[in-house]
Design a protein around this nucleic acid. Structure first.
Lengths: 187, 187
DNA sequence: ATGTGCATGTAAATTGTTACATGATTCA
DNA sequence: TGAATCATGTAACAATTTACATGCACAT
């Protein structure tokens, strides 16, 4: 997937997932479990992370002094909670600031099928276009459900989650538009 | 990456990359080398494939009777060229037609950074927004260069490449819009 | 008492990439 | 004759997912 890690300084060894974990800790996710939830509720539309990747990342970040953790069991259930350190904030700032390599990687079987849709009879092809359009319509609905949360964050000073949400919505609206155009044109 | 392969029939064992190869053979790419080129010149914006994956896919497709190959060396340089069989066309039709599972998978470090951009000072954050906007502007320019080719294909009856191209352009135009909006709002 | 959520972890499998290797043809 | 392009291949590696495993806490 060619995720760039290289950087100028000593944090060259930190991977993108590690920075994602760091960012989520900064936003208030305390345990590995909470980080997974936070990702699934926010950036999952442009970045996913599996539970398995989180715990090694946390350990690495702690070794690097970017987060500090302490055991805080809930009763007899073990739990380790973390908070970001000053060094961690600096490292996160540095990563976010340097534009570096930001590949836009899209992998969409739907678009691949559309690209090849000329094999099909017109009606079948239009059904595929419809299916893709509906998929985006559902996605827009889903994203609209998140909007209130993003507005809450904006009120507290975190304005950028709203920006990424807007982009997601506009994205799929664009897809809906183009599909609709073709549907009316070839029906 | 959770790419679904399951299907109802006997071609359940064919992966998405294999269908991509099949589709490209149908569109006239003859050798493995040409397939790689075709992918890089068309669907690379929503699907990539490395050279290494192509040759095993070709072998598998041939064993399944979906393409037929013959050795056609160029002088002393070995080369194997393929064409799609009737069974291959049927299989491709079936795959394209069934909507099945079409996950829209986006992985974009740029958007991740934007999401976390509230760590930065306003000016630094706006620079990041600009960088993301410029990236999309470049992408739109690149896609516009392909437009003539897609129009040529349309004239010959392959209209769907143009649809996917349009979607790509509108995608990035949407991104540019939202970025611009935020730039003027917070400058 | 039982199901759902919290919390972490291991092992195996899959998927895909990078780097390397080889050699022929074509065109300037 | 040297560089770019055509053409295929192997080996090692990196990233990520799936499946499995465990057990407590809490509310009904």
């Amino acid at each position: 997937m060619a995720i760039a890690t290289r950087a100028g300084s000593r944090d060259a060894e930190l991977s993108t997932p590690a920075y994602v974990v760091l960012g989520m800790v900064r936003l208030g996710a305390r345990s590995g479990y909470e980080i997974k939830q936070a990702v699934d509720q926010s950036i999952r539309f442009f970045w996913t992370i599996s539970q398995v990747q989180i715990y090694p990342s946390l350990a690495k970040l702690e070794r690097a002094g970017l987060i500090s953790g302490r055991s805080e069991p809930q009763g007899r259930r073990p739990r380790r909670v973390y908070e970001i350190t000053k060094a961690g904030v600096t490292a996160l700032e540095g990563w976010v600031r340097r534009p570096g390599d930001m590949p836009f990687e899209l992998r969409d079987i739907g678009l691949v099928k559309l690209f090849f849709a000329d094999v099909l009879e017109t009606t079948d092809a239009l059904e595929l276009v419809q299916a893709v359009r509906r998929r985006s319509e559902e996605r827009v609905e889903l994203l609209r459900l998140i909007e209130p949360t993003a507005h809450d964050a904006e009120a507290v000073g975190d304005v950028y989650p709203l920006l990424t949400l807007r982009i997601g919505i506009r994205f799929h609206e664009a897809m809906i538009d183009v599909c609709h155009e073709f549907e009316t044109r070839f029906r």
